[in-house]
C-alpha cells in the first residue's frame, strides 16, 4: 500500500471510530427517550391523586379547583413538566352512572383549563424521582359555579370526573411529549376541600 494511502486510511479509520462512538451515544439517548415515553404513562407512573373542590357558599364567589398529579420518573433522564390541562365534570350519586357514557356526560361539564409553567423548578422531576404536581383553575362564572356546586344531598360529597393531559419534555433532549387520557373518578365521592 502506498504510504500516503496508509496515512489517509488511518485517518479514515479514526473518523469511522469517532462516528461509531457518536452513533452509539445517539442511539443510547434515542433509546432512553423511547424508554421515557413508554414508561411515563398512566396508571403506573402517572395518576391524578386528588381533586380538590372547595365548599361553595356563594355563586358569585370565585372558586379554585385544584388537581394533584402524581408523577414517578423511573427512567434515566430528567423530565420537565410544563403543562397540565384538565377538564372537569360534576356528578352526584344518582347521575354517576353516566360517567362512562361520552354522549351523556356533556350536561355535567363544568370547564376545561389548567396551568403551564415552562421552567418551574417544582415541575422538574429528576431521574428516579417522584413528585406531586399541583394544577388549578379558577371558576368565575356563576353559571359554571352552579354546575360545580353539586354535592350529593345524602353524603354532602362531590363526585368530580377529571380528564387531564400532561405535557413534558426530556431535559437534555427538548422534544415535547404529550400524555393524554389521564382520568380520575371516585364513585364514593370526595369531601369538599376546606384547608
Amino acid at each position: 500500500m502506498n504510504k500516503y494511502a496508509t496515512v489517509i486510511g488511518i485517518g479514515f479509520i479514526l473518523v469511522s471510530v469517532f462516528s461509531a462512538v457518536t452513533l452509539a451515544m445517539t442511539v443510547d439517548m434515542y433509546g432512553a427517550f423511547a424508554e421515557t415515553k413508554a414508561k411515563i404513562v398512566p396508571p403506573t407512573n402517572l395518576s391524578i391523586k386528588e381533586v380538590r373542590v372547595p365548599p361553595i357558599y356563594n355563586l358569585d364567589e370565585d372558586i379554585r379547583v385544584t388537581i394533584l398529579l402524581s408523577v414517578n420518573n423511573p427512567t434515566r433522564l430528567d423530565i420537565q413538566v410544563y403543562s397540565i390541562e384538565f377538564s372537569i365534570w360534576m356528578f352526584n350519586k344518582s347521575t354517576s352512572e353516566h360517567v362512562g357514557n361520552p354522549q351523556a356526560i356533556e350536561q355535567f361539564y363544568v370547564f376545561s383549563g389548567g396551568s403551564s409553567d415552562y421552567d418551574h423548578p417544582d415541575f422538574l422531576i429528576p431521574s428516579g424521582g417522584q413528585a406531586v404536581l399541583e394544577s388549578w383553575l379558577t371558576v368565575t362564572t356563576p353559571l359554571k359555579i352552579a354546575v360545580l356546586n353539586t354535592t350529593d344531598p345524602d353524603d354532602g360529597r362531590y363526585r368530580p370526573l377529571v380528564y387531564a393531559d400532561l405535557r413534558y419534555e426530556v431535559v437534555d433532549i427538548g422534544v415535547p411529549i404529550t400524555v393524554r387520557g389521564l382520568s380520575y373518578f371516585e364513585p364514593l365521592g370526595v369531601d369538599p376541600y376546606d384547608p
Partner: peptide, 11 residues
Amino acid sequence: FVSFFPEYSPF
C-alpha cells in the same frame, strides 16, 4: 441517522 435526529446527538 444523526442528521435526521439531531436532538439525540451529542454533536
